[in-house]
């Protein structure tokens, strides 16, 4: 899905999910590891931490969007 959006629209698509090997296998180019399968962008338990974790991943996504890459890249930070 990510690959086809990127190809069709010709725009960078950042993929945030938990299982990095699957993202690499299906051909996503800009990859950000999520937190857990049921809550890739959340840390349930503490409201503040939950939001902070999500914000961090969103900021990292914006960075990935503006970064030039020439192959599949995992943005770990």
């Amino acid at each position: 899905m990510v690959r086809e959006i990127e190809k069709t629209a010709g725009i960078p698509v950042v993929h945030i999910a938990t299982i990095v090997p699957i993202m690499l296998t299906v051909g996503s180019n800009r990859i950000i590891p999520g937190i857990a399968i049921p809550h890739p962008l959340g840390k349930p338990g503490n409201d503040e931490e939950d939001h902070a974790a999500r914000r961090k991943l969103c900021e990292r996504a914006l960075k990935a969007i503006t970064t030039k890459i020439d192959k599949q890249t995992v943005f770990k930070e």
């Binding site: 938990t18 990095v20 090997p21 590891p33 937190i35 399968i37």
Partner: peptide, 11 residues
């Protein structure tokens, strides 16, 4: 007997 965990680190 092994697991199928929901985090990469768990896997």
């Amino acid at each position: 007997v092994t697991t199928e965990m929901m985090t990469l680190v768990g896997k």
